[in-house]
Nucleic acid binder design. Sequence first.
DNA 1: CATATGTCCTGAGAGC
DNA 2: TGCTCTCAGGACATAT
Length: 288
Amino acid sequence: MPELPEVETMCRGIAAVVGREIRLAARVRCQRRPIQVTPSPGEWKKNAHGQTIAAVSRIGKRVILELSNACRIVFEPRMTGLVLLAEPPTTEHLRFEVRLTDPRPAEFEDPERLGQPLRLLFWDRRGLGSVRLLTPQQFVETFQSGKVGPDALGVSPSQLQSIFGDCRQAIKPALLDQKKLAGVGNLYASELLFRAKIRPTLLCCELRPPQWKRIHQQMQFVLQQAIAYEGSTLNDGTYRNALNKEGGYQNHHQVYGKAGETCVRCQHEIVRMVQTQRATFYCPNCQK
DNA sequence: CATATGTCCTGAGAGC
DNA sequence: TGCTCTCAGGACATAT
């Protein structure tokens, strides 16, 4: 479930692609039902092949490659998508490949691949993700204001309050609305509200400035710390960084997936509930 | 417009 | 052991 920290880790992990030229960018044939790849192979050839990757960036939970012709390649991992420079976890779910010019940086040297170009891969077990090539105009239309909210790591406490303050939704499902705020997903929403000592069911319009300040503070803390640990690899082992290594933040979760366990602050039992069809974990004693 | 629900997908784990 | 069923949730389409 790549959220902001996992997608940021992917971006950092593929920084070596910047400055390289795209030799080929195409779907990989696999036995599974195909993921969404747009536009047509002909358009990919016209607008991606031969272009240099000018920059790697992130918009919310998407990885963006900016090309020298100002087109963008957008990777959307959704539930199980991975952007990799290493060999994928399985060849079965390999979906898309970007072949880049040599030489590769030394840390990616693999004797078995000598003489082959550096490959940037998109792997997706469940196949809910997508890969898109957007023209500059399409890129602006896709991400213009209103389509995606400000980044969760770039907002101020007062901005947070102005985004959510009038909302009559509960705070936890509201945090998941990417049109309001980009980057927070189901796992980190529970974690940050626990640390902020805010009950997930409180309506946004009931929250006061001191509470928004705590939410802001713990949102920055949790997301930054999760980035430092290269994201969370849950028990299913799906999430990996760009070199196919596990993240480490799952060892620092305090409530997510911990129903029935003891609260680290007050020893009360952690509870699982469902809000808008998503699991929420919290401590009923110390989240007021 | 705001908020809620249904849909896609695979594989792990539960229960019998 | 081996089968069936449920569940996980990101983003979008559709419904209220």
